Amino acid sequence: MFGFGRKKTVGKRGEPLPESHDGPPDSANPSGLCPRCEKQSSFDFVGSLPLTFDGGYIVSRDGPNVPTFHEQATVMLCRNCHQGIAIIEEQWTGEHRSIERKGGGISSWKGFHWWPLVGATLHKAVPVTVASAYHEAALALSANCPRAAAAMARRTLEAIAVDRGETTGTLAQRLANMSTKGLLHPTLSDWSREVRLIGNTGAHFDPINDVSPNDARQLIDFIRELAKYIYVLPFELNERRAAKP
């Protein structure tokens, strides 16, 4: 329960390895998925600066009073790609954000925004036209604009259809053609229709059927998997074959 006696993962030289963590790093957990290289890594702390002050002060006997803050910007360095990332963090006390002033516990800093954006880039095998539209969708989602994210997810799907040779007809017709040609697995084809429909909702005003952040996140996650299926897996297979003697 408390982690006593827990075995640590070590590398070939006996060095401690970071615990697997699906999310990006922050001061509370300086290991995880690097937003730049998208590899599991540990991170070195570079420094932090206060961002949002809460009106309080730490009274000092020997110097000026120090204003307290509940948000900070932290920079860390990935040990895998040796590149820096920026994290916007908020202070937590126990299980609550410190600004809520609820309960007590250990103080920690947890991230809620990362730069570069997590999952905002696609593999080098993905065409620029597709990757660019996807990047805008991810940017919109990170800015809490789910309708814009859904609309750009739909545009990404259109870019994929054009890249696969489907340049005429409605998007629905293009997706149907791709499915008929075997370019889309039936499950992917069904999901593509969801992207098209929710993307339409995001692009046009509809007071009843709006786009939630979760809708937009699922669409972007799907687009990422679709790009992997269409572009990345064939690319990696060809590289593997080329590497064989």
Results as ranks from 00 to 15, higher is better:
D163V: 07
D62L: 13
V128H: 14
L226D: 00
I220P: 02
T168Y: 13
I58W: 13
F205K: 09
G94P: 01
D163I: 06
L77V: 13
Q40L: 04
T187S: 14
R13Q: 13
R79L: 05
H21P: 06
P16Y: 07
I85V: 00
G199R: 06
W92F: 02
D210K: 11
G182N: 07
M178W: 05
Y231S: 04
G165K: 03
N238W: 11
W191T: 11
D221N: 10
L33T: 15
P245S: 08
V211T: 00
G47E: 01
R101Y: 15
L184M: 03
S98T: 14
N200P: 00
F4M: 06
F43Q: 02
M76R: 02
I198Y: 04
N200H: 12
K8R: 14
W114M: 01
I99L: 12
Y57E: 07
G14F: 01
V59A: 10
S98R: 10
A149W: 04
D190R: 13
P35L: 02
L226A: 08
G119V: 00
H204D: 05
P186W: 14
K7M: 14
L197R: 13
A73H: 12
G104S: 11
A143I: 02
A159M: 14
L17N: 10
Y231Q: 01
P207G: 01
D62E: 13
P186E: 07
V211E: 00
P146K: 00
P18M: 04
G94W: 06
H135L: 09
P127A: 10
R196P: 01
E166M: 09
L51Y: 13
T156L: 00
L188R: 05
D221M: 05
A28C: 10
A138C: 05
D210Y: 07
A131V: 06
K8G: 11
T167K: 15
P30K: 04
A150T: 02
L197C: 14
G63N: 12
P146A: 03
T74W: 09
N29H: 11
I88Q: 13
R164H: 15
E95M: 12
R147C: 11
S192Y: 06
D206L: 06
N238A: 15
L175W: 02
T68H: 04
E89R: 09
L139A: 15
F235R: 04
F69P: 00
I198P: 01
A120N: 09
T74E: 05
K124Y: 09
H96I: 05
S212F: 04
D206S: 10
G202D: 00
T93Y: 12
D54K: 03
R217I: 08
A172P: 09
S60W: 14
V59Y: 11
P24Q: 03
H204M: 04
A227C: 15
L117S: 04
